[in-house]
């Protein structure tokens, strides 16, 4: 972060020097503690994942064999799957294998290695999440700039209500409306399907990914634009903005060159967090647009009662979310020294 970012909250020179000498060691300690917490949370999350599937009543063998078979068959399969072992032992075995990249094989068709299926699906969801966040930022920045440069204006006053309006549209409803308006009325975009980046090239890939990404992006854009608008309004009251204006800098330049960067930290954080959240949050959109991502995998696992596939997919999503969050947290501390000092 540049010095301009901190101009408004800069403390006295003495404070700064003292903080600098104390800074290094607490930061390392802070990171180490964060890392310890991270490991514990991941362990707990994996335990919860395993419990959801295994502790609850319900028998996975019924899902595999179908109902109304002779009891011996169920018993044999239970034996084979190791379901008669103690719960904790099964958990440890499962986690040990998972840490070695082996999430087991599922007998429910189309079957196959769970890790392979997740790795095929993951890029779709990851790309979707990334595109959605990118699109949301692209939408949010002009909206926020406009509202912040006309504070209290007509558009600005409508922003809060609009934001709540937009985030109150559930994604399946939004998706259906987008399909109605942009697919059926205009025929500009494909209704569903997916072209892999490697197979079909970037243009085809984006052509198929645009509508699902847009559906996800609108919610995010609403949140980002409000956040960025508030931060911008706060920044525009800083002295260095006044100085820039006093020097006769044009308004657009003040907004873009001086105000936008120091104000965007909050939005960048939230964007990082939503990247992690969207990784598992694309379930509805993937189902609606028929995309072969993690979300579709989970829905299929849930409707088939496929416990093994579900465990694997949920574990990957939870780990991804926790890891991205931790990264955001650490990079935030790194980007903004104010927080680093406060926490240390």
């Amino acid at each position: 972060m540049t010095d301009t970012a901190l101009a408004g909250t800069r403390k006295s020179p003495g404070d700064k020097a003292r903080a600098r000498t104390r800074r290094t060691i607490p930061t390392v300690r802070h990171l180490a503690r964060r890392f310890g917490e991270l490991v514990v949370v991941l362990l707990l999350a994996s335990f919860l994942t395993f419990s959801f599937a295994s502790l609850l009543p319900g028998d996975p063998t019924i899902a595999i064999l179908g109902p109304e078979r002779p009891p011996e068959e169920y018993a044999a399969l239970r034996q084979e799957m190791g379901l008669d072992e103690p719960f904790l032992l099964r958990y440890v075995t499962w986690l040990w294998d998972a840490l070695h990249g082996d999430l087991g094989r599922t007998p429910i068709p189309p079957g196959g290695d769970v890790m392979d299926r997740i790795l095929t699906a993951l890029p779709v969801s990851a790309e979707l999440a990334f595109l959605a966040v990118l699109l949301a930022v692209v939408i949010a920045i002009p909206v926020a700039l406009f509202c912040a440069s006309h504070p209290g204006g007509r558009v600005d006053r409508m922003l809060t209500a609009t934001v709540f309006g937009v985030i109150s549209v559930p994604s399946f409803l939004l998706g259906l409306l987008i399909i109605m308006l942009l697919v059926n009325q205009t025929g500009l975009f494909p209704r569903n399907g997916w072209q892999r980046l490697g197979d079909a090239g970037l243009a085809q890939n984006l052509y198929y990914a645009f509508l699902p990404a847009l559906t996800l992006a609108l919610n995010e854009a609403a949140i980002y634009s409000r956040l960025l608008r508030n931060d911008l309004v706060a920044t525009l009251r800083e002295d260095f903005i006044l100085a820039a204006k006093a020097k006769g800098m044009p308004r657009a330049r003040v907004l873009l060159r001086e105000a936008l960067r120091p104000s965007s930290l909050g939005m960048v954080t939230i964007a990082g967090v939503s990247l992690g959240r969207l990784l598992g949050g694309t379930v509805i959109v993937e189902t609606l647009f028929g995309l072969p991502g993690l979300g579709s995998l989970i829905v299929k696992a849930a409707s088939d009662g496929d416990v093994i596939l579900m465990q694997g997919a949920v574990l990957v999503i939870a780990f991804g979310y926790v890891a991205v969050n931790a990264l955001v947290d650490i990079s935030y501390t790194w980007l903004d020294p104010r927080i680093r000092r406060e926490r240390a």
Partner: peptide
């Protein structure tokens, strides 16, 4: 706090789907 963080690691719908795998 750790327990809460672990529970919040699951997106809402994913958690519900995980429960729906085994329960009617």
């Amino acid at each position: 706090g750790t327990l809460v963080n672990a529970l919040l690691a699951f997106p809402p719908l994913v958690l519900l789907l995980a429960l729906a795998t085994n329960l009617e």
